[in-house]
Design a protein around this nucleic acid. Structure first.
Length: 228
DNA sequence: CCGTGATCATTG
DNA sequence: CAATGATCACGG
């Protein structure tokens, strides 16, 4: 018999949120889905965000497409992160869409990236494809805030990428730019286009991009917490 | 199309 | 075999 139940409202304070997150540790996705009355897809091929939605439901996050933190009142963003058997991330972590126009004068301090990463509740989840989706287990949560060093790394990468975007070099940016933060396509497909600044300062159409945390960065912050 | 949730799958 | 570039679903 289980004694846990999904939060139906945003948690009123941080302690409630953390307690609930800790209570989920050890449960499988199949168990959590069953209690919540959510069907488990055969795999994630057509349901890439399913685990995120499931954990949002369990933690009382306001599901939706609002460009805000998941727990706005608490200033906390929720991120599920797929890990291997050693606790290392299997995927990069999407942060937010990158603004490709209207960026003259933007600074790190007020950027969406910094705001999103101010405080993150990381929920590691077993992610190896050999494990059936329903059998994958939720790990212990980690409420993280960037250290001064981490914020500096993020800021330097962000500034380099934003400079290139402002200077009309967005199509010359590859995922290889940036040590811990990278810019990659974020779209339904390669036909989705959005406005950006071209090399000569004119208006061009290009793929929408998003900022992603590279695995070296998330691996380090997870390791610091879980491998003492 | 945009922003939310991300992972897939081809390729170097 | 890791990483890059591409892609999937949905509400608004």
């Amino acid at each position: 018999m289980h004694s846990i139940k999904p939060l139906l409202q945003p948690p009123p304070d941080e302690q409630i949120l953390l307690a609930q997150a800790q209570n989920l540790a050890g449960y499988s996705l199949g168990e959590l889905a069953a209690i919540a009355g959510l069907p488990v897809p055969p795999d994630l091929k057509r349901d890439k965000g399913w685990i995120g939605i499931l954990l949002e439901l369990w933690l009382g996050a306001s599901a939706g497409s609002k460009p805000e933190q998941d727990f706005a009142a608490l200033g906390i963003e929720l991120k599920t992160i797929p890990i291997d058997s050693l606790g290392r991330p299997l995927e990069t972590t999407f942060v937010c869409v990158a603004p490709l126009t209207g960026n003259t004068g933007v600074v790190w301090e007020t950027s969406h990236v910094r705001h999103k990463l101010r405080r993150v509740l990381w929920i590691p989840v077993e992610g190896e494809r050999q494990i059936p989706l329903a059998d994958r287990r939720v790990g212990s949560p980690l409420l993280w805030e960037p250290s001064p060093e981490e914020e500096q790394q993020l800021r330097l990468d962000w500034e380099e990428l934003m400079d290139l975007i402002v200077l009309g070099q967005v199509e010359r940016i590859t995922a290889r730019h940036g040590e811990v933060l990278q810019l990659r396509p974020k779209a339904a497909n390669s036909k989705a286009l959005t406005e950006a600044i071209g090399a000569d300062g004119s208006r061009i159409l290009t793929l929408p991009r998003g900022f992603y945390l590279k695995k070296n960065f998330t691996a380090a912050l997870l390791a610091r917490h879980f491998h003492v």
